[in-house]
Every structure is written in structure tokens, then in C-alpha cells.
């Protein structure tokens, strides 16, 4: 058996330093650092483990409007065979329907080249929009099944895949026909750290950039509009202690607790 796998990778503002707001309430994206959506690396890891087990080919695919294609090199270094970036200047206006539409068209195009796509993987949700709808929507556009919140892929046999999915009060094991779209949770596949050699090699690789106009899209109106954003004021004290001398750090910690009137013992 040999699997053709597409992994969807989103670029997001670094969740460690989320964007602030401009005076008009829109996002100030000028100074944000763009990184790969952290959960997507779990999907990449899942793809790599499948390839190691069953053989095949992994293609990374991303959609965005920025020029920082270097962020995808970490994904290449992890071991995906090739990576394609679709750039669209209107991306910031896109709603989930448009994003899933463009990506499903791109998957179709890749499928034409590969002959067949067996699996499409992505992370359960992105750290910026937190929507979690991509896998299902791509499944619907492509008229194939989809399973979200996948913890582990258990087995692939005779054109079917068995996965363990996370639900509210436990797990559910499902069998699905392939091709299928899976959204992978950050639970079952700890992403590998690429070696120095692979990292250097990845820096030298070419990343083709596609334009949405190459995908034969129909005009679609953006249906979901963002009206405004609001900063959530953290009510947390956010007192951080670090010291190579742990005793001192703990002294300080207990002093602060005392000062703030917090008692651990009751």
C-alpha cells in the first residue's frame, strides 16, 4: 500500500504574542510574527507516521497572503515530500467557507497530478480564529467523509481507515471509507523535532507558490463578516518568578501570596 496524503498547514500570528487592536478596533497585524499554527504540526506528525508505516507521499499545502514562506521550512524539515503555498492578497477577508473552498479546489488540482489523494489532514483548529470547521467543510466540498478531533489513527486496511476520535465524555472509534479528511488533535502525535541536517536541507528547497486564479474558482461572496474585535482584559495577576536559586524564588513566591492575601492551606 502507498498513501497519498495532503496536510493542510495554516500560518497564524504567533500565539505567544497575539495581535493588539488598532484604534478602529481592527487587528494590528503589522508587527505580528507569523508562525505555523502549532496544532498543525501534530497533523504533520500523524502524516509522517502513516508514511513510515504504509509508505507514500506527503504534500503540505497552505493558503495565506504573506511572504514568509520560510516558516513552512520547518514542516519540510520534519519530512513532508513537498510543499505548496497558495497566495491570495484578499486572504484576510476570507471566511471559513471561502478558505475551505479554495483549499478543496487546490486538493483537486493536486489530485489530478498525483492520480489519487487518500487522506487530507489538518489540525483541529487554528490558534487565531479558533473555528475548527475546516476538515468538515473540505469534506463537504469534496463530497467525502470527514472526522474531527482525531486522537489516533489506528489502522488503514482495504481502503478504510479506523480512527479514535475525542468526544465530550470519552472516545469513539470510527471506521471510514477513504478518501477522508481528518482533523488531528494535539494529543496523540507529539511533533518530531527535525535534525540539523534536515533543517539545512529544507532551507534549500523550493516552495512553489500558486495563485488562487490558477485554481479555476467561481466568484463567491464572503458571507461571514467580522464586525469588530475586543481585547479580553486578563484578570490574572501574571506574577512570574524565575531564579536559579530555587529557595529564593520560593521565598518570593510565598511573600507575594501573603501580600495578596492568598492562603494555600485551609
Amino acid at each position: 500500500m502507498s498513501l497519498n496524503i495532503i496536510v493542510l498547514v495554516k500560518s497564524v500570528p504567533d500565539p505567544k504574542t497575539p495581535p493588539t487592536l488598532k484604534v478602529d478596533g481592527s487587528l494590528d497585524l503589522k508587527n505580528v510574527k507569523i508562525v505555523v499554527n502549532p496544532i498543525d504540526k501534530y497533523a504533520v506528525e500523524a502524516a509522517l507516521q502513516l508514511k513510515e508505516r504504509y509508505g507514500g507521499k506527503i504534500i503540505g499545502l497552505s493558503l495565506g497572503d504573506h511572504d514568509n514562506i520560510d516558516i513552512f521550512r520547518e514542516i519540510i524539515a520534519m519530512g513532508v515530500d513537498s510543499f505548496i503555498y497558495i497566495k491570495d492578497p484578499d486572504y484576510q477577508r476570507f471566511d471559513t467557507l471561502q478558505k475551505s473552498y479554495v483549499l478543496s479546489k487546490a486538493i483537486k488540482k493536486i489530485e489530478k497530478d498525483l492520480g489519487r489523494v487518500d487522506l487530507v489532514l489538518c489540525g483541529v483548529e487554528s490558534s487565531d480564529t479558533n473555528m475548527g470547521v475546516l476538515a468538515s467543510q473540505i469534506g463537504e466540498w469534496l463530497e467525502i467523509p470527514s472526522i474531527s478531533y482525531v486522537d489516533k489513527i489506528l489502522e488503514i486496511k482495504n481502503g478504510s481507515i479506523i480512527v479514535k476520535k475525542i468526544i465530550e465524555d470519552g472516545f469513539i472509534t470510527l471506521r471510514s471509507r477513504m478518501p477522508v479528511v481528518l482533523s488531528i488533535a494535539d494529543t496523540g502525535y507529539e511533533p518530531r523535532i527535525p535534525s540539523l541536517r534536515d533543517t539545512i536541507m529544507a532551507r534549500r528547497r523550493e516552495i512553489p507558490i500558486w495563485k488562487t486564479s490558477d485554481l479555476g474558482l467561481e466568484f463567491r461572496e464572503i458571507v461571514l463578516k467580522t464586525v469588530r474585535f475586543k481585547q479580553i482584559e486578563s484578570k490574572r495577576l501574571g506574577k512570574i518568578f524565575r531564579d536559579e536559586d530555587v529557595d529564593k524564588m520560593i521565598d518570593r513566591f510565598f511573600e507575594e501570596l501573603k501580600r495578596d492575601g492568598v492562603s494555600l492551606l485551609r
Binding site: 506574577k239 512570574i240 524565575r242 531564579d243 536559579e244 524564588m249 518570593r252
Partner: peptide, 9 residues
Amino acid sequence: EVIEYGGRL
């Protein structure tokens, strides 16, 4: 407000 505290050798 003290927002960070730390020591280093």
C-alpha cells in the same frame, strides 16, 4: 506593578 522577577549567575 512588578511584572517580572528573576536572577541569573
